[in-house]
Design a protein around this nucleic acid. Structure first.
Lengths: 118, 118
DNA sequence: GCGAAGTATCACTGGCGGCTGATATGTCAA
DNA sequence: TTGACATATCAGCCGCCAGTGATACTTCGC
């Protein structure tokens, strides 16, 4: 059993679970909607709520998560908080995903193993 | 209510749920372990099982899913099936994720909103 | 100070997805 | 043909995360 774990670790030393967790951060339509909205520029929570249609507590929760994960960064301005993408490579990652969806990964939406919005 | 949906759609026309689903395909440690193993070259199911420590039915299930999604491609060779990454950009995507984890997204593993392996 | 607006936090729940164990299908060797 | 091997499929259970609703906290206008 410890052997199996070792084998798993040997594939990519250490960061396998972390990478899965990173992708999981991007795997939720709500979080993705927030990130997409922020690609155009910084937004306050209220603006994000308006842009995505999420409820305010829900958006706040996801923003907390995204912030802790280092995907977005929030800057308090009075009673408002402006959020922005934490890194340019996040934009690249999203763009690359779009490319794949137009290409080989076109069959994703047909996959029955899991849903888009859980 | 239909207004909120419209707003959501306006962020990225059409492909928001699909992109979430693509990331969800990468968000599982088992699937990610398979993809990582395949980055080094094509492998049969048995070799994947040995490399990842997954059970055979479990690996087969994930391979089916990954194949339907267009992330891997399988080629039957006798009673063996060799799987490989379906596109080079999948490798790029994984590399970009690693970069982010070494950089701004370092706090991902500390995020308590969700786990690495569900 | 007081009320209001913006944001964050909390407990709760329902639905979904990943793992397992058994079984089916298909293919090679003898 | 028969047995063994490689892979695929199936049903069921369990743990979990996303959403909701209520509420607390902070900051601004008056």
């Amino acid at each position: 059993m410890s052997n199996d774990t070792d084998l798993q670790e040997r594939v990519t030393p250490g960061t396998l679970a972390e990478r899965a967790k990173l992708f999981r951060g991007l795997a939720d339509p709500s979080r993705l909607a927030i990130l997409e909205a922020l690609r155009l520029g910084p937004l306050s929570v209220g603006q994000i709520v308006a842009a995505t249609g999420l409820s305010q507590p829900n958006a706040s929760n996801h923003l907390r998560c995204l912030s802790e994960c280092g995907l977005v960064a929030g800057e308090a301005r009075g009673r408002f908080v402006d959020y922005r993408l934490a890194d340019l490579r996040i934009d690249e990652l999203l763009a690359l995903a779009t490319e794949l969806l137009d290409g080989p990964a076109r069959g994703v939406d047909a996959c029955k193993s899991y849903r888009a919005s859980p």
